[in-house]
Write a protein that binds this DNA or RNA. Structure first.
Lengths: 348, 348
DNA sequence: GTGAAAGCGCTAACAG
DNA sequence: CTGTTAGCGCTTTCAC
């Protein structure tokens, strides 16, 4: 470690200024000088110091990202997509997990700000408690929220259109003959949980069917499993269960299976996200696919638009999702699907 | 953005040196000065510039991590564990995905080196092709490999004891009565695939049972599904299938189910990793649990031991895994397990 | 086209 | 205990 541009300049017999110009190519130098410098750099194994460059340029080429947890496959997918988007523009991702805790989240925000990230992409863990830290960060650096957001609408956001999503899910099970349907999701500390519940209630009201009181816990396999058991224990089963995410749906499926309930013959189940293993559980899960790549692309694009200190209306971009029909839901015709379990039939 | 330590010093009526000392607390200042400085910093909303500090200190407090892909839940888990370990010591994670491509991997290594990470944790995607770039990086900065490693043994590594893992898996299905068993895994471009196949062959030889020729593809759900189909197509089924990871196992399970094969009555299936949804698939998967937290802790600890340029024998730490028996494998007694599907019975 | 020098923000000598 | 100053490695005026 430790060959600097001074070493390169000396070896090439030019000034550091010329060396810098030759290496960056952003300014004219004699071809002969350029050649000599590049040669020297290669021979010495010169590697530009990004830290020094960052200090000088006041820009790090680094984007900070904070998600509640990397264990949740949905967040994983979105991290992956964002990382991919950033590659395109030569930037790197500084990744943090808030572990679903506003205090940790605030701390992570501070260290990212201290590291002078050029922008921040965050899925705030708590609708209310996350707000102060997020708004404060947004004052310092371009910030866009993904999936979850904070109350008050003070910062840009890109996510899915939950109303559309839930309407598709509810209409689908209703078309399959469901007359009573229950929603199993997370407690309402985050925006996704709130929006999805609201969307569900709207959709069931519009469809004129009985929405039993929702079961609210966490976005986890374990909660889905538990909810499934309590459904089994608490009297007559609903015709359909709509879930707040796929993890819940998979856990629920497992509980129903253990309880001897046939899906979809007795109960239809619909998930949300379409994570990788949704197509491989048994039966393959009917779910609402989040447009993750689009969301990531949109988030990165938005990030480039934001100018700190330039007052401008906060953008909210809700992308319409698509229902992917697999085999946990009854079809309108009354039959069930067959297939190889890999690809579902998609609604148009 | 832009309140510096100079601003704080001026506001407090002291020199930048005193301000720095007061803020860091690493040197004596009058309590009264300390108070004034802290007050001024708070009022101005001063946030130390980590980039400047890094340039000055020649250390960034940043660890780079490169994994083949974030889509694979095993890597996700390990990233999560490493991130968690780093938090403890106030360091941050610069995360990259190589997308299973040595060229991209080499490029990512270079940018991490340019960013002057204090250390590197990598799971090299290719046993051979990854070697030059990884060894070169190891020459510049402390580097430890996790899970996968490169040929030649030139760099530190921490992972699982694959021989022990496969022995446990094979012995378990043999105890359950299996006389023929096939191994479904990834092609041999990475060390995990090689070691696991070797471990499998060793274990079957020792057990004196028929190991049919292995099916080698990728560590994905899709490959597991495909392998399952070809097993169904290609004549008599084996008594047991041991898989290179859980993704493969879950895909395979699905294919067998579609083919009308009962698991574990007709075929036992064993996975590898014990990722989150292994307990929730149907039936819950018997698998070998990777000690991910220990691996991450060990990797971070090792990183602290390495001194670049100090020649020292490369460490190789193989942690023994544990077989988690769930319901895809026949037990020695000939029966199958029952349970809530959440926790498996663990071997001691 | 090239070089000298300033300066990004910070901390650690080094004097006082 | 406090202040002044050098310098981390880089790019970019500003003169020549």
């Amino acid at each position: 470690m430790g060959v600097t541009i001074h070493d390169v300049a000396r070896a090439a017999g030019v000034s550091v200024a010329s060396a810098s110009r030759a290496l960056s190519g952003r300014r004219k130098v004699t071809p002969e000088v350029a050649e000599r410098v590049k040669q020297a750099a290669a021979e010495l194994g010169y590697r530009p110091n990004a830290v020094a460059k960052a200090l000088r340029d006041q820009t790090t080429g680094t984007i900070g990202m904070i998600v509640p947890g990397i264990g949740n496959p949905f967040f994983t997918t979105i991290v992956e997509a964002v990382e991919h988007q950033l590659q395109e523009t030569g930037r790197d991702l500084l990744l943090c997990a808030s572990l679903y805790t506003p205090e940790i989240e605030a701390r992570r925000l501070n260290t990212l700000l201290a590291r002078r990230v050029d922008g921040l992409i965050i899925s705030p863990c708590d609708f209310e408690a996350s707000a102060p830290a997020v708004l404060n960060a947004a004052r310092q650096v371009p910030l866009v929220q993904v999936d979850r957001y904070i109350e008050g609408g003070g910062a840009d956001w890109v996510g899915v259109d939950d109303d559309s999503a839930l309407a598709q899910a509810v209409d689908h099970v209703v078309a399959g003959g469901a007359r009573s349907v229950v929603f199993v999701s997370s407690r309402l500390m985050n925006s996704s949980a709130r929006l999805r519940l609201a969307g569900f209630q709207l959709a069931t009201a519009r469809a004129g069917i009985a929405a039993r009181s929702p079961l609210l816990g966490e976005f986890t396999l374990a909660w889905g499993f538990e909810a499934g058991r309590s459904l089994l224990a608490d009297g007559p089963l609903p015709d359909a269960v709509v879930c707040g995410n796929d993890e819940i749906a998979v856990g629920l499926l497992r509980a129903l299976r253990l309880g001897g309930v046939r899906v979809p013959e007795e109960v239809s189940v619909v998930g949300f996200d379409d994570v990788g293993h949704a197509a491989m559980c048994d039966p393959p899960l009917t779910t609402v696919r989040q447009p993750v790549e689009e969301m990531a692309a949109e988030a990165v694009r938005l990030l480039g638009q934001v100018r700190v200190g330039e007052p401008r209306a906060a953008q909210r971009i809700a992308i319409a999702p698509r229902l992917v029909v697999r085999e946990t839901s009854r079809l309108a015709t009354g039959g069930t699907m067959t297939g190889d379990g890999q690809e579902g039939r998609e609604t148009t």
